[in-house]
Design a protein around this nucleic acid. Structure first.
Length: 868
RNA sequence: GGGCGUUUAGCUCAGCUGGUAGAGCGUCUCCCUUACAAGGAGAGGGUCGGGGGUUCGAAUCCCUCAACGCCCACCA
């Protein structure tokens, strides 16, 4: 930071400054949180990005918001910790590695578990730094010395403990149930990892002959290949069509196996034929029916999605893929003339969230968490306000899900993840669930690993040292303060953190859940690599600057948390603002005559009072909005204040008459207010400011607070009046095409004292030659060829300067508008009910306004007459 | 089937507790006035999706309809 003010570039060089400033912060370890500090804590844990991932706009938004909050709280006097880290992302990472392997023609089985894990660890370690490094280009003020990984030692310990404890409490169990099986990932996945897509399929009606009788029962199915696993045909008990068949047996075509015809309420009489084949091993609903009726489970499709070669299955489809088998089965049914009908049928098909493969519901032995007992407290704590969602509507969403919660399948048939701490005796098969293998010689650990979300569900406390509740971090920073994330992972992540946090630490893991919208492309489509519509934040940051990207993203965060439609050009908004701040600051700094400002705020002009009042209001609004997570509003308020008040007026006025103390004071305060959103730019300028600083860095300085003594309401209003006058005169000049080089004269009626103080301003900013003050009786001036503005208090004689016709039409237009407003207000005042029920203040305001309008209208009328 | 969201200026969107609408971009006019052309000055542009209701007063609250989007459920 050796440059002189004069050689600062005339455009803000974001790239250079950002690098330099971030290094300055890092070198000084400003992001490090002190767990021994006496300050009150404020902590945020990052939603851990996948190790496999690269920074996308969602991260950029999420990270920006977290950083804004962290920086704000840090400046507010909190010991602020933003804790970074990564998620091992079980399936996602394993998929990536397997893809790499397949390029070499290998599978994970060629390497074996141990070697595969070595490869994956190497890969994960090398990528962990990549994504967190990208967060750094965002200006993230997270404490990298506390970086965690969901698969690191501490997290593993926490995971094991949670698993063992839940098991011992009877909240984790193992059993055979229908699960969502992904034949490609070769693993079970949970219900919420299954996404449904509408597909055009068929509804086949197949005739099942009745045993020992003429006739048949026709069933309808979308999956004929599962017929080999049928164990019954079910009808509704109230369906008269089938009343006589209940209890009889029918025969599965092609294979001739006999199955009972049963009655179950589940069957919808009106759908299809009203008769439903029951395949408990391959359909969740059939599974339930099967259990109710004590039916056997016949598994006919294997984990690869292929038909199992077993006696119940027709040999022609043995080993065929399920879709091939479907075709073949339909052909056979046709040949046997038992296919009654084929209808087109639109239905929803479950897909694997990670690889989009069609899910196969499969009977399988898996581990589950019993959710209902855990959900109780999680529901309670949201209902009683201990945990608040912002915006509030997400609370309903969360509660609805929690109140209908189903058990969570947590085992995955993967290698990358937390291996389940269950050990089986090699001979007796006895199972022990424990932190450690009781006897490695005789016990073998369960091969499955846990769902990634199991460990991320512990994130707020496992990262703070839990289960060591005496650790300094845990004591200081747990529970955390705010959780910032998108609504897409409320169920996956937020809900699980709340349940686990409450169960194991007894307190909510955070008090506020700030949910922001999702980033979409400019057409509202989800951004995805496959669609090719992504915007790379790293490139945007390079192009527009990190602060510009942050400012823009923050600006797009609405109160309601709407999704954000983004295009790269939108960042111009932030870039332009950064540049404006840069240049205005440069100007101010270059024009300071004394090197040390003493902030003497006595002897203020009305302009000073006005800007101080504006600043004070801005301070109030920025604080309020930050406290209430109205981040978009924060940026709007800052933008408006700086550009429209400070630059457009106050800095301009300072060229005529300046108060260095105020000029600097306002800039200093503004920079602090802006710092959480645009950290680098504000730090850079602040470092260049020749003022006494209580801290080494703006990021460590105090956040401005509203101060009543800086509200100068009356002077402020007076100043605004002068600005209106200047605007009006400029308007006249422009309307009549008066060249900038031509000066006009102005007559002013009333407010003489005020205007006398600001003649300089009028002369310079409105290009006025002479100002004449006139008294109330001086009406003749208004009736000559003049333009009249500012409630007729400002008169600009235009003789010789203007086109009369043009002025008449202009005045007529103005009069129309005026009358319109007047009539509308008049109607209101004529309404007795309004006068009686509206607050007196509003009534008076309306009356005053009518008078104003009347007076002004009269003058315009006179003027028009005169001109004509 | 249930729930939620959106519909405001040409475009993208703000508008919190009801008092006749704002920004950015774009458009038009003028200006290289020594901080900034990524800029300055001025202007134009909206019956706030339709209909009904509550109210003295509705973009704002209620009902209803429509369009679009999302989430949950998963009738084979």
């Amino acid at each position: 930071m050796t440059e002189t003010l004069e050689n600062l570039s005339t455009t803000y060089n974001a790239r250079e400054v950002e690098k330099e400033i971030y290094k300055f912060w890092e070198d000084n370890e400003f992001f490090k949180a002190d767990n021994k500090s006496k300050k009150p804590p404020y902590s945020i844990v990052i939603p851990p990005p996948n190790v496999t991932g690269i920074l996308h706009m969602g991260h950029a938004l999420d990270g920006t918001l977290q950083d804004i909050l962290t920086r704000y709280k840090r400046m507010k006097g909190f010991e602020a910790l933003w804790l970074p880290g990564c998620d091992h992302a079980g399936i996602a990472t394993q998929n990536v590695i397997e893809k790499e392997l397949s390029k070499q023609g290998k599978t994970r089985f060629d390497l074996g578990r141990e070697e595969f894990l070595n490869v994956t660890w190497d890969w994960a370690n090398s990528h962990k730094s990549r994504i967190l490094g990208q967060f750094k280009t965002l200006g993230a003020s997270f404490d990298l010395s506390r970086t965690r990984f969901t698969l690191d030692e501490g997290c593993s310990k926490a995971v094991k403990k949670v698993f063992v404890d839940l098991y011992n409490k009877g909240l984790i169990y193992k059993g055979s149930y229908i699960v969502n099986w992904c034949p490609r990932c070769q693993s079970a996945i949970s219900d919420i990892e299954t996404e449904y897509e509408t597909e055009q399929g068929h509804l086949w009606e197949i005739s099942y002959p009745i045993k020992d009788e003429m006739g048949a029962i026709v069933i309808a199915t979308t999956r004929p290949e599962t017929m080999f696993g049928d164990v019954a045909v079910a009808v509704n008990p109230n369906d008269y069509k089938y009343k006589d068949l209940i209890g009889k047996k029918c025969v599965i075509p092609l294979v001739g196996r006999e199955i009972p015809i049963i009655a179950d309420e589940y069957v919808d009489k009106s759908f299809g034929t009203g008769a439903l084949k029951i395949t408990p091993a391959h359909d969740p609903n059939d599974f339930e029916v099967g259990k109710r009726h004590n039916l056997p489970f016949i598994k006919v499709i294997d984990e690869q999605g292929k038909m199992i070669a077993r006696s119940e299955v027709h040999p022609d489809v043995w080993g065929l893929d399920r879709y091939e088998a479907r075709k073949r089965t339909v052909e056979m049914l046709k040949a046997h003339e038992v296919l009654v009908k084929i209808d087109n049928h639109e239905h929803n098909v479950g897909k694997c969230q990670r690889c989009n493969t069609t899910i196969e519901p499969l009977l399988s032995e898996q581990w589950f968490v019993k959710m209902e007992p855990l959900a109780k407290a999680a529901i309670e704590k949201v209902k009683d306000g201990s945990i608040q969602f912002i915006p509030k509507r997400w609370e309903k969403n969360y509660l609805m899900w929690m109140e209908n919660i189903r058990d969570w399948c947590i085992s995955r048939q993967l290698w990358w993840g937390h291996q389940i701490p269950a050990y089986y005796h090699n001979e007796t098969k006895e199972m022990v669930v424990a932190m450690e293998n009781p006897d490695p010689k005789n016990y073998t650990q369960d091969k499955d690993v846990l769902d990634t979300w199991f460990s991320s569900g512990l994130w707020p406390f496992e990262t703070m040292g839990w289960p060591d509740v005496e650790s300094d971090d845990y004591k200081k920073f747990y529970p955390t303060s705010t959780l910032v994330t998108g609504f897409d992972i409320i169920f996956f992540w937020v809900a699980r953190m709340i349940t686990m946090g409450l169960e194991f630490t007894g307190v909510p893991p955070f008090s506020t859940v700030y949910i922001h919208g999702l980033i979409r492309d400019e057409f509202g489509q989800k951004m995805s690599k496959s669609k090719g519509n992504t915007i790379d934040p790293v490139l945007s940051i390079e192009k527009y600057g990190c602060d510009a990207v942050r400012f823009t993203l923050a600006n797009l965060c609405t109160y309601g948390g709407q999704d954000i439609k983004l295009s790269d050009e939108k960042f111009e908004f932030g870039r332009n603002f950064a540049n404006k701040v840069w240049n205005a600051s440069r100007f101010v700094l270059m024009n300071l005559e004394s090197k040390e400002q003493n902030f003497d705020l006595s002897n203020l002009s009305i302009a000073d009072k006005w800007i101080l009042t504006k600043l004070n209001q801005t301070i109030k609004e920025v604080n309020d909005n930050l406290e209430n997570y109205r981040i978009g509003e924060v940026t709007t308020v800052l933008y408006d204040f700086f550009w429209n008040c400070y630059c457009d007026w106050y800095v301009e006025l300072s060229k005529i008459e300046k108060n260095e103390n105020v000029l600097t004071y306002v800039l200093d305060n503004f920079l602090r207010l802006l710092h959480p959103v645009m950290p680098h730019l504000t730090e850079k300028i602040w470092q260049l400011m020749p003022v006494k600083k209580e801290e080494k860095a703006i990021m460590k300085s105090k956040f401005p607070e509203y101060n009543e003594k800086f509200d100068f309401e009356e002077d402020s209003k007076a100043m605004e009046m002068v600005f209106d006058a200047i605007r009006s005169i400029r308007n006249i000049r422009q309307s009549f095409n008066i060249s900038p080089s031509v000066k006009v004269n102005v007559k002013i009626q009333g407010e003489i004292e005020l205007y006398k103080k600001v003649t300089n301003y009028l002369k310079r900013l409105a290009r006025v030659e002479e100002i004449e003050f006139i008294d109330d009786n001086h009406t003749s001036d208004k009736q000559s060829a003049s333009a009249v503005v500012q409630n007729s208090k400002i008169i600009v004689p235009l003789k010789g300067l203007i086109d009369i016709e043009q002025e008449i039409s202009r005045q007529n237009k103005k009069l129309d508008k005026l009358n319109q407003e007047k009539n509308s207000l008049q109607n209101r005042i004529n309404n007795e009910k309004f006068v009686n029920s509206a607050p007196a203040e509003v009534v008076q305001k309306t009356k005053d306004r009518i008078q104003e309008l009347e007076a002004e209208g009269q003058i315009i009328k006179n003027l028009i007459d005169n001109l004509s």
